[in-house]
Design a protein around this nucleic acid. Sequence first.
DNA 1: CTGAAAGCGCTAACAT
DNA 2: ATGTTAGCGCTTTCAG
Lengths: 348, 348
Amino acid sequence: MVGIDDVAKHAGVSTATVSRALSGRGYVSDATRAKVSASAEHLDYVVSSNASSLASGRTRNVGIVVPFLSEWYFSSVVEGAETALLRRGYDLTLYNLTGGGDDRRSVFEHFLLRRRVDAVIAVSLELSDDEVSSLHSLGKPLVSVGGVLPGVPSLTVVDSAMTSLSTEHLLSLGHTRIAHIGADSAFDRDFKVPTYRRKGYEQALRDAGITPDPALFRAADFTMKGGFRAAKQLLGQPRDRPTAIVAASDEMAIGSILAARDLGLNVPGDVSVSGVDDHQLADFFGLTTVAQFPKRQGERAVELLMEHLEPDPGAAQPVPDLSSAERVPVPFELVVRSSTAAPKPSTA
Amino acid sequence: MVGIDDVAKHAGVSTATVSRALSGRGYVSDATRAKVSASAEHLDYVVSSNASSLASGRTRNVGIVVPFLSEWYFSSVVEGAETALLRRGYDLTLYNLTGGGDDRRSVFEHFLLRRRVDAVIAVSLELSDDEVSSLHSLGKPLVSVGGVLPGVPSLTVVDSAMTSLSTEHLLSLGHTRIAHIGADSAFDRDFKVPTYRRKGYEQALRDAGITPDPALFRAADFTMKGGFRAAKQLLGQPRDRPTAIVAASDEMAIGSILAARDLGLNVPGDVSVSGVDDHQLADFFGLTTVAQFPKRQGERAVELLMEHLEPDPGAAQPVPDLSSAERVPVPFELVVRSSTAAPKPSTA
DNA sequence: CTGAAAGCGCTAACAT
DNA sequence: ATGTTAGCGCTTTCAG
């Protein structure tokens, strides 16, 4: 195994110089740097990250903790983060909490804290104050994606604003009987996403002078099947059928479209449907939705972290304290496709 | 930061004993072990994985390389591997090659080789001989999932057998005009999955004395939209319409079901449809499919690796050379749901 | 700008 | 069964 001394010998310099030349820290003349790089290349030298970490205290590795992986949102965030890290020469260690309670404790106590990572990205995870402060006291920067953590910079869309937006879109088309498919609070995962999405829908209605009708709300489970069932209930009513459905997720929205078809209803002719996410299937179903960009969110999380891990020396002002900017808003936008249209003129 | 000496002092033993007690290697009396554990717990001691790795040469970390993450199959394999590793006290470092060519080279040269991992799991990745041998020469066990790599134990379903199975299922129901939606070889990703799945379909037909009809094959792209389009072509024919479709993936199968509905055809009344994978949506669409179990595949990969990373001392026979068992077959099974049925008696 | 040398925190012989 | 001690391979003062 070729080590730093081999390179030093080959280049005719000291190991200290090799270290400086290759890591970019400290002064090295351009000539020396070139010589060292050449030797390193020639010998196929790669630093031992362990030795390097042990000596420097930096690991060039960040941990990302997710509750699930095989769901579009989470895997996209991870993908974005991974790409951004790779580009900067960092590794990504994945902690998947699918297992449940025990796993979670173990991850925090035995893994993250093992000084394996320089920083942590928590995705849609409601960390306890203890968990947050143990990270802070270790000096590990922490960023949250998909939910706001007190005292932690949090990259997240404003959930209520997303459904307000799609509801307003439908209102502007002339709809007034607009139903909502979400989930009840019992189903709230970390961060009460369903609750906020429902609130956004209700607020938009109220702003338009419409009182939300509880009969037009159905709780489902964020799956296609759940959306399908809920929509059947909503659309099967022989009278006062809603002319539009605001679903809290694209999967439920797609389920609703399929339910409408089953009932012989035309989308958007008889009923308009909108979702949230811009899931990979949204385009195929012509679904109007409010897009969020999880991949981009993962990248942004890494950028935020990097400002602290590797402060830009040229920066005019010092890096703001990580905990100062609690909520870092991330973009979302309405994508209008073919599942929404003006309601048919009432034939009543 | 509390270190091993603090624990040693607190427990009144030497650091070597602490190391032995906590790692489980070497002899320590039960009493001492208990004492040490108590001290460690009390002081909130966690080993520095870097120092430990540097001294021992083991990292307790395995790398997993995937071409995509936001696809059901890949994220499931990773999830399975992660769970299995976590249980054994290992970390999982994820390398996502989505980026393309440059990333790939960089991953191999600068990351995996940085002695960061004890072993590597390659998912659906056709590694070059160079890549394989550089791993071997570093003494890093390598396991492939989702494709056979020469000289590497490979956990993989026999792709042709999966489609043979679903084709036989359809034949046994009495179908004879069975179409296939796959992808052409230009679309072959690593390992030629589409090609093998097509071969399985053709073989089953031949075994039943039927000559595969090229007109009954359509190339798509493994997506729902692609399956939808291909099925429209197939099912829109005014005469000699196939009575069944064997799709090479569930997504394409679901696209086919939607296409059939669009055309006013009943599934399975007018046309039967089968897929491959048992994707999360398969159940909702009542899709008959050939299930494979990616999560389990990820777990199995870890089990294989562990036999080499931590050989069971009680094992009667020595661990077989990793490269001896090239193809480790993994289970798959036909799941019959409501998208397949006997063809309607011909009314011709 | 470069070199010498002292660790980083732990593990694994080797002794006892 | 436990202690002593020499590294693991690099980074980083500190001199020069």
